Amino acid sequence: MTITGGRAATRITAPGLVIGTVAGLFAALFALVAGAPAAWAVTGGLLLAVPLAVFGAGCSALRLSGRLRTGAFAPIALYWLIAFPLARLIQEVGTRLVVGDGFALPPQPGSFLVYQALISIGFTIGFVWVQERLVRGGA
């Protein structure tokens, strides 16, 4: 990959990486403020930040490549309708695995995923809003 290609890739994926990372850090901070043990909050924050950053970079790349049309909310909402619940499932299972009692799905996993899918719409709104301000021209 050339230097120019590397810069282009960075410009394309950086907004999604930043948004995902910041979301995970906020989750850790809120867990600490709510009184969660530090190990649980930090682990949960990291296990949310990493998948959200990866999915965010993927969404950014798809938007900037034209596969997810800029200015159209529905395709991006559909992307996050799948990606956000997966990120939360990774966080829940991973945190329980690392800090908790071992491998365990969240109670009522179907309801958990449906609720996360509903929450994904709010995340999508924030993602699009922030990304359009980070990338010149709203691409």
Rank of each mutant, 00 (worst) to 15 (best):
Q116P: 09
I82L: 14
L86N: 13
F55I: 05
A39C: 11
R88C: 13
P37H: 11
I76M: 07
S65D: 10
A77Q: 04
V93C: 03
W40A: 06
L47K: 01
I76K: 04
R88T: 14
A87I: 07
A28G: 05
T95C: 03
V98M: 01
L32M: 08
G100M: 01
Q91V: 13
A74E: 02
I76E: 05
P37T: 09
D101K: 15
L81C: 09
R88E: 14
T70C: 15
A49E: 02
G58M: 04
F84Q: 06
W40Q: 12
R67D: 14
V33H: 12
W80S: 08
G24V: 07
V50C: 10
V99R: 01
A87V: 09
V54L: 13
A39L: 14
Y79F: 15
L29M: 10
V54T: 07
W40E: 10
A83I: 05
V42P: 00
A61C: 04
A34T: 01
P107M: 05
A53P: 07
F112A: 06
A28K: 03
A41L: 03
L86D: 09
V33T: 08
G100V: 00
L81F: 13
A77C: 07
R63T: 11
L29S: 09
A104V: 10
L97F: 05
R67S: 14
A31C: 03
P106G: 07
A83G: 06
L81A: 12
P106E: 08
G102N: 04
A72T: 13
P51E: 01
P51H: 02
R96L: 13
D101F: 11
A72E: 12
W80K: 15
G58A: 01
S60C: 13
R88W: 08
P51W: 08
L118N: 03
P37Q: 11
